[in-house]
Design a binder for these strands. Sequence first.
RNA 1: GCCGGAGUGGCGGAACUGGCAGACGCAACGGACUUAAAAUCCGUUGGGCCGCAAGGCCCGUGCGGGUUCGAUCCCCGCCUCCGGCACCA
Length: 825
Amino acid sequence: MEERYDFQRVEAKWQKVWEETSLYRVEEGGKRPKYYVLEMFPYPSGDLHMGHVRNYSIGDVVARYKVMRGYNVLHPMGWDAFGLPAENAAIRHGIHPATWTERNIANMRRQLRAMGFSYDWTREVTTCLPEYYRWTQWLFLLLFKNGLAYKKKAAVNWCPSCQTVLANEQVVGGLCERCESIVEKRELEQWFFRITAYAERLLEGLERLPGWPEKVKVMQENWIGKSHGVEVTFLAPDGTAVPVFTTRPDTLYGVTYLVLAPEHPLVERLVAGRPQAEAVREFIRRARQMSTADRTAAEREKEGLFTGAYARHPLTGEPVPLWVANYVLLEYGTGAVMGVPAHDQRDYEFARAYGLPIRVVIRPPEAGLEADTLAAAYEGDGIMVHSGPFDGLPNREGGERITAHLEEKGLGRRQVNYRLRDWLISRQRYWGAPIPIVYCPRCGTVPVPEGQLPVLLPQDVAFKPSGESPLQSCREFLETTCPQCGAPARRESDTMDTFVCSSWYFLRYTSPRQEDRPFDAQRVNYWMAVDQYIGGVEHAILHLMYARFFTKVLYDLGLVGVDEPFTNLLTQGMVLKDGSKMSKSRGNVVSPEEIMRQYGADTARLFILFAAPPEKDLEWSDAGVEGCHRFLNRVWRLVGSLRRELLEVKAEDAAVRAADRELRRLLHQTIKRVTEDIEERFNFNTAISALMELVNGLYRYRDDIPAADRHRGLLKEAVEKLVILLAPFVPHLSEELWHLLGHTTSVHRESWPAYDETALVTEEVEVVVQINGRVRDRLRLPVGLSHERAREAALAQERVQQWVAGRRVAKVVWVPDKLINSVVQ
RNA sequence: GCCGGAGUGGCGGAACUGGCAGACGCAACGGACUUAAAAUCCGUUGGGCCGCAAGGCCCGUGCGGGUUCGAUCCCCGCCUCCGGCACCA
């Protein structure tokens, strides 16, 4: 054996062998229980980055570990291959998006193989291939047929730089999630998926996901934003009903005005013919022009205008002025709100700015509240005042009563509202799955029949510098015939949001070459749900909610047997360098390929697993990588130095001495720790440190005990089990060592070692001796001592005597085999 | 503002159910081997103090309090950082 291990040779050698022997190929069925490990598939940007390496190293440990635990493990990989960068490359460098994507995939596939991940590559899935997007289109049609895909004209988010519309989820603080341009509002007719129909199910389902991080569940909960309230109807004198939504019916008597969103359809009717009409119309025009960013800007000056109209208060009959204001959103609730300045901070600010009256109707406990001196709205609980027959009631109860009263009189009804909006899936771009719809002058909107799928992207198109989709001017694509009547018709030129493609890829992996269906029912039900899903937290809302939505729809339609796709979710932290995220602009990118070249894949994997627990951010450290590499060499030399000795071992039962027992205990303790660290908490960093300690222990044993005196059988067990325990983390080195130890089958086919409880027990333990909770001494005591005996032993100690001298021992606390604490005086 | 999460040596991080704070690794320093270097191996390494030494004492897990024989861990109040949401009525 060489002095240093030649990682380049070893890694290349085993990657080849694994591939030739199809080591990672999986089939459905068999006696072993199934286990589906999935890592979020990458966008083929060109090169693997450290985030990928981390994500996939974590997944690979889980996959290999589960195989060794006797599971039939599905561990696939694929490509989220549609998307804007490919199109931008086409515009800038004149490469066709398909070519660009193919090249990137080839390169990244090579890099993934070089990392030694245990994927079943026969199941590889690529979303931009017709054999895949055909089924994305099929699923679109399925949603369409079930009323879950529809087209509507709406004010939508438009990114001027990406030249396309965006879903709500893709607008972050008024900026485009991708390019951070300011997003504009545009009135456009677009395709939507009716995800709001599943709002309640998506919310309720979270409760059945104990294996998800609380953080992600809370984020989704907030995004769905359920709130209970009452829809109250105010009537204008001309009979126009102005419904408002409120969660505070208890403050109904405090209403001093109503506000409508500028875009509210009733506004025109209310102002028509009034002196205010022109001013209001101008106000609406200005509000419309404002970008989302402006409207959500930090200062957010509340602006509004009186319409001249009044409505009648449903309980008091008093006239209430109707306003329009920019702080009311058309999309939420009824697009109109009641203004209660005394008990809502926004209303308070608006009322103060425009001199509207303030009426206190909730009195805080033990304090007065005067409208004139009010410095801010009082939003807490209290006793109702100035509320007619409801005076004196606690506000919660009063709210209930008012609601009941309104319902009785037909003036309002209980209502549940969600913040979640329908998912806008149209994209005005080329590199995506075409929406399979044809517009016929006679038949209208016609779905492309299933038999005619896929609607292929035309290959030969010209990419314009403006970014405008070439599909919009591609006659061969646009011009078609109506599938219903055969008349000339026009194809939909928009493509689907790439999140549609990634909303079902985990189903396709179960039967990736299925030609007549998106997936095979039997196979999908064998593998689903994904037992462990791993990816970045940036998808907490977007991808993870869309995928849940798709799964629920398919479940309802009987296509899959589960309604939650991912049973357990692990969101891994970012990889940082010098305290911030690696990025080209910061110039702090560490290339995985470079690390592999210098240290090998095993070192890269080991470091990234060792440096931090998976869910935390990880600070890249060249010195740390160096240290991991050193450790692997240390393992190599250990095995190298003992190999001859171990190869000759026959069944041998030497006398077991203290050092042997010590080694045996260390070994089994390590098995226990590594197993529990992986199994219970995915704490690979502590699992690895346990393995380091085992290696240190083996060195000590080797150096302290002369070769002739070593218990070779035990030593062999320890070294072999060490190699097996290392296998999920550093698969190449482990495989090489395994074979050097005389084995001819793969270490990755070995069973995970079990630990022997009896090996863990010791006769003696070190017990901490405390006086008043402070450590004063240590004591070696036999295991399982009684309180009485331990107390005697402790008090007999000279050091304890010194501390106790002349004082009364009030109490002695005995934590068996760990600690004895005497409380004195 | 609201909702999450986190603050531990020079650094990354450990500490299981309230029981030895700092495992493991990095860095640093000292030493061995070497003509030299690399590699490797051994030792020291939270701070302060007492002691020739063996050894011992005090302080220490963001800050201030509390509960407890005993708190990194539980409770109350604050500070800082990170993430999410942000006129959602």
